[in-house]
Amino acid sequence: MTTEKSPQNLGNEPNKNEDLMLSMIREILLKEDREDIADIKAHFDDNEKLAERINPIIEIHVESMKRKFPREYQKQVERIVERKIKASQDELLDVVYPVMGKMVRKYVNHQFLSLKEGLDDRLGQLFSFKGWYNRIKAMVMGVDESEILLRDLDHTSIEEVFIIQRDSGLLMGHFSRNETIDRDVIAGMLTAIKSFVEDAFSKERQELELIDYGTYKIFIQSFHLYYISVILDGSISSAEKDALSAKLLDFAEKEMPNTLANDVSPSDYETLSMQLSKYF
């Protein structure tokens, strides 16, 4: 450590001058302090040196914060998070549902795809003409194969789409090829039947997914606060079901509001029905 004003030759020339004596005493008394101050000043003037000294201290503090934080603040943080989640549970769930659905679907799709690829290898040409036709069409047109599947389905059999509040059974939006009478009542009855079936037959939380009704099929995609029901005339393959499900999840993610009132206002109804008609 260097000092700027290091006193030189202090003991070598004894002086009787009082001033000198005083300054010597001062020097002796204050020497260490002055050195310290100079030392400190030097440190402060030099960022690197300052950092060298301070960083370890900060690190120690950060470390101890890290260690202490969970213990000291865990309860508070937990309480805040818990409160936030509780307050917006419904919104949260309806935000999460479509995303979760998508994730699950992606995974299942992937599994199916690898299975299909494996089969493709072995079966070669044996796949149905329609399948190949679709795949080639997809390649040429650059669209998703499932989108084509759905488009075929579209032309033949989607009769109606209902968006229905889960508890009240109130109709939130509707799309139909033909004018339907009593769609409110149908939505209500559908909800009642769905509740009944889920209540009577499922021990765990399981949702009704498909109702067979004569030549009609009622496909149900459940969300937390509402469900979307698609009435199909004819049969639906699992690939078509998958494509339909993907479309509904996509619709829910993009178009559905995150909160629901205990009634349905005409303007919300109009908006959702409009959006539905764009998708189907």
Binding site: Q165, D167, S168, G169, S195, E198, D199
Partner: peptide, 25 residues
């Protein structure tokens, strides 16, 4: 527009599936 749910009478209300009641205004 009132959607009226006629719930088959039970002797006790708690025998009726709760979902029939939910969402009622």
């Amino acid at each position: 527009s009132v959607l009226l749910w006629d719930i088959a009478g039970e002797v006790s209300q708690d025998k009726v599936p709760i979902s029939y009641f939910l969402g009622a205004a």
